[in-house]
Amino acid sequence: MRRSVWVRSGIIAIFLSVCSASAQTEQTVQELNNLIDDAIFFTDKYITPATDAAVYQAASGWISTPKKSNLWDFTAGLYVNSFLVPESDRQFRLSNSDFSFFTIEGTDSALTPSALGNDAFVTLTGTLNDEPVVVKSPEGVNRETIIYPYIQTALGLWKGTEVIAKFSPQITLKHVNYQVYGVGVKHNLSQYFKGLDAHKFSIAALAAYSKEDITVEFLDVETAYGNLGFTALNSLIDTWQFQLNAAKEFARLELSAGLILNTSDFQYEIQGEKGAVEAIVPLHSIVNERLREIYKTKSNAIGELSARYQFRRFFLQTSVAFGKFVNSNISLQYKFK
């Protein structure tokens, strides 16, 4: 009789232990879901100004001149791009009401830098499986002007058509890596209107595709399960662009104006070494799938003005693109014959 009581007591103890472990696991999974919700919200606020800016940086400078090119004319140029970071895109406001998992340490609301912001930060705290989680929000590039170089080439084909390619090496700014490359086709339109050529007017249209690749240092989340592996956030942007430019020559000086219309698709992916929490839940895969919620497509209308001066086979050019942002570049080009 006593042995039977002990057996029943043992079974009950095991059952209660299993139920307790199951409840604890369920609580942990819910806490992770809340953490993911907060990470998605924060990602959108933090990275969007930088990705919007990247589109502007990639959009300008494609047409060095709308003049008709001759077959096999080849021009190569070194460009230096300069992007002015607007004050309004350098930070955003966080409130505790925005979060399900985190709270802002010491306050209910705070300004925190975007990827284009300064090196300030806020501390976010939460609890995962009854263990504290403390995260420092990511910092920005801490620059008022972002400058980077790139190479652009143009090759003349038949009937006033040119193929254009641009490429920048990967640029490392503070907490941010950036790269852009693309290809376009320009066609001269003024060749069909003889009166325009006679008065030194030229018009051209461009269709182009570019890829912008941005990786930022992100959320370094340490937990009882180890680091969650959110240490880097990558954004890939596919931009399709149409552009119309017109120019007037004054001896060696050419002044031009253009209208740029583009559409960009934005995608995001968390990168970093996976933590031990992956044994409970495939966190990386879940987060990257959830990031699809903030994938977006945006369109821009951008104006562009430029001036190009020729001396022998060299050309010195400066241009400015304007709309939501202001982006400028200066280049030195050489035309091979």
Rank of each mutant, 00 (worst) to 15 (best):
V5E: 12
V7R: 13
V7I: 15
R8A: 07
G10Q: 13
I12C: 06
A13C: 09
I14N: 07
F15H: 13
L16S: 14
V18K: 05
V18C: 07
A23P: 09
Q27G: 06
N33A: 06
L35R: 07
L35F: 07
D38P: 08
D38A: 10
A39K: 03
T43E: 02
D44E: 13
K45G: 14
K45N: 15
T48E: 08
A53T: 02
V55S: 03
Y56K: 06
A59R: 01
W62M: 01
I63H: 02
S64V: 02
K68D: 06
S69W: 07
S69V: 06
N70R: 13
L71A: 10
L71T: 12
L71R: 12
W72G: 00
W72R: 04
W72I: 13
D73E: 10
G77F: 00
L78S: 07
L78D: 03
N81W: 00
S82C: 08
F83E: 00
L84Y: 15
P86W: 01
E87H: 10
E87V: 14
S88E: 11
R90L: 02
F92E: 06
L94W: 08
S95F: 03
F99M: 08
F101N: 01
I104G: 03
E105V: 12
V122A: 14
G126Y: 09
E131G: 07
P132Q: 05
V134L: 07
V134I: 15
V135W: 04
R143E: 15
E144Q: 12
I147M: 04
P149H: 09
Y150W: 11
I151Y: 15
L157N: 03
L157T: 04
I164H: 05
A165F: 13
S168Y: 00
S168A: 14
T172C: 11
L173K: 04
L173Y: 15
K174N: 15
K174G: 11
V176L: 15
Q179H: 10
Q179I: 03
Y181K: 14
Y181V: 04
S190D: 00
Q191E: 10
Q191D: 11
K194D: 06
A207V: 15
A208C: 11
A208M: 09
Y209R: 07
Y209D: 06
Y209I: 07
I214Y: 12
D220Y: 14
A224D: 02
A224I: 03
G229M: 03
L233T: 04
D238G: 13
W240A: 02
Q241W: 05
L244H: 10
A246I: 15
E249Y: 08
R252D: 15
E254F: 02
S256E: 04
G258H: 02
L259T: 09
E269A: 10
Q271Y: 06
Q271A: 10
G272E: 06
E273A: 14
E273Q: 14
A276P: 00
V277M: 09
V277N: 03
E278V: 09
A279F: 15
I280W: 09
I280N: 00
H284G: 05
I286D: 01
R290P: 01
R292F: 07
E293G: 03
E293I: 08
I302H: 00
Q310D: 14
Q310V: 07
L316R: 03
G323H: 04
G323N: 04
F325L: 06
V326N: 01
L332K: 06
L332A: 12
Y334C: 04
